[in-house]
């Protein structure tokens, strides 16, 4: 019995430490490494279908009338230099977009920043650096999957989204929303409210076959996802470009830059 008591105490204190760390509002760093927090409290206290209080007119979710700018516009058929940035979802999306780029005469430079969020990209000027490096005339962003369950996301992340869009500046862009596997706490509405009409592709509500982790679409599913995005870009986005559908499969991007998760 005695070893069990001491083991139980050990496990209980470890659990308390992890939960306690989550309750501390400010980020905790050890030797310059920011510690990730658990989601115990979040999971237990968040309303299952929580929504944020954005003004209705600020959102462009698909069940609402399509704004003028998203009605079909003639696509720009010139070859583009596309910069594709985002989180690990690019693993599945980027090779398929590369196939589109190859088929349609575009160049594609992808930057995968693992575990990145709007906060990670928004608090630094890396995106501006990549814009300067690759001189893209079209930017595709896929971010939001790592912050589906952040509480008070509007107040916490709005200025980071603003900063990302400021770094894109006047370059035509498309923001691909996260492939929700659960109801989010407002990231989709936040991005929809900040992006221009016809630039946000809402992925929530689409069906995905998921990989083992339950979050990332499988390789095949990600290809179909990219096909949907490409079709939407051509037909409904504010900045349609030539994206004729290539044969099924993937290709290699002009360059792929991989950034390690932020510490």
């Amino acid at each position: 019995m005695k070893p069990y008591i001491s083991l139980w105490l050990l496990l209980a204190i470890a659990l308390a430490a992890v939960v306690g760390m989550e309750l501390v509002a400010c980020p905790i760093e050890i030797f310059g490494v920011e510690l990730q927090k658990s989601t115990f409290v979040d999971v237990l206290s968040t309303e299952p279908a929580a929504t944020c209080n954005l003004p209705v007119e600020a959102t462009t979710l698909p069940d609402e009338p399509m704004p003028e700018a998203t009605k079909p516009i003639e696509p720009d058929t010139m070859p583009k230099s596309i910069l594709f940035i985002g989180d690990s979802m690019l693993e599945g999306l980027s090779p398929r977009l590369a196939a589109y780029a190859k088929h349609n005469g575009h160049r594609l430079n992808s930057v995968i920043w693992y575990s990145s969020t709007t906060e990670v990209w928004g608090e630094c000027d890396k995106l501006a650096g990549f814009v300067k490096k690759f001189h893209p005339d079209y930017v595709v962003v896929c971010l939001g999957a790592n912050e589906l369950f952040v509480r008070d996301i509007i107040t916490k992340r709005a200025h980071y989204v603003d900063n990302i869009l400021n770094q894109i500046d006047t370059i035509p862009y498309v923001w691909i929303g996260p492939p929700n596997w659960k109801k989010d706490t407002g990231i989709n509405q936040l991005i929809a409210s900040k992006t221009k009409p016809g630039t946000f592709f809402l992925s929530d509500g689409m069906h995905f076959d998921r990989a083992k982790d339950g979050a990332h679409p499988t390789r095949r599913s990600a290809e179909l996802w990219m096909d949907s995005v490409a079709s939407w870009v051509t037909l409904h986005s504010a900045h349609p470009i030539k994206l004729a559908k290539p044969a099924p499969g993937t290709a290699r991007a002009t360059s792929v830059t991989v950034l390690q998760p932020k510490k």
Partner: peptide, 19 residues
Amino acid sequence: PWAVKLLIFVVLSISNHSF
């Protein structure tokens, strides 16, 4: 000592979330 075991397990639990 028990405290060392505790320390190792706590560090591990926190690291598990950080990676």
